[in-house]
């Protein structure tokens, strides 16, 4: 496969990875929407994926040739916003005033995140298909 097109496939593949990570994080946020106890005894904190662009083929860029820019997960950070509070005196984790601290997860926000990640995933899959078409057309020249 010609090198520039291979780097384009690598870039799209890195995006598939990154978008999958976003979906995984959104799913675990949604799953833990009522988790009042984490490993540290505190309510679960919403997690967020930080994406960073990442040149996939530095050799080509050194040569000044067209090279693809992929993406990578730079970090998964915890959202430091204050927890939601709900009045529920019978809950074992309620404080002295009867309030329970719940994770700072907003379901609507997670759904939007998941949707945008899924769309980007689809777009990158389509891109890989288009590049594959081009490569197989180029290989047809040898027939």
């Amino acid at each position: 496969m010609p090198s520039p097109l291979r780097s384009a496939v690598n870039a799209a593949a890195s995006a598939l990875n990154a978008e999958r990570a976003r979906i995984e994080v959104a799913v675990s946020n949604l799953a833990n929407i009522e988790s009042t106890r984490g490993p540290d005894g505190q309510p679960y904190k919403r997690r967020d994926v930080v994406l960073q662009s990442n040149p996939v083929n530095s050799f080509d860029s050194v040569l000044g040739r067209a090279s693809a820019t992929g993406v990578k997960v730079a970090a998964v950070v915890e959202d430091q916003a204050a927890p939601r509070r709900r009045y529920e005196p019978s809950h074992p984790d309620a404080d002295a005033e009867g309030y329970v601290a719940l994770p700072n997860v907003d379901p609507a926000e997670e759904m939007v995140d998941m949707l945008s990640a899924a769309r980007a995933y689809q777009a990158n899959l389509t891109a890989i298909g288009l590049i594959r078409d081009m490569v197989s057309r180029a290989l047809d020249l040898g027939k």
């Binding site: 870039a11 995006a15 662009s53 693809a68 820019t69 992929g70 980007a120 891109a127």
Partner: peptide, 11 residues
Amino acid sequence: VVAASNLANVN
């Protein structure tokens, strides 16, 4: 290649 890079960095 450039369009694929742009698409990879859509987010």
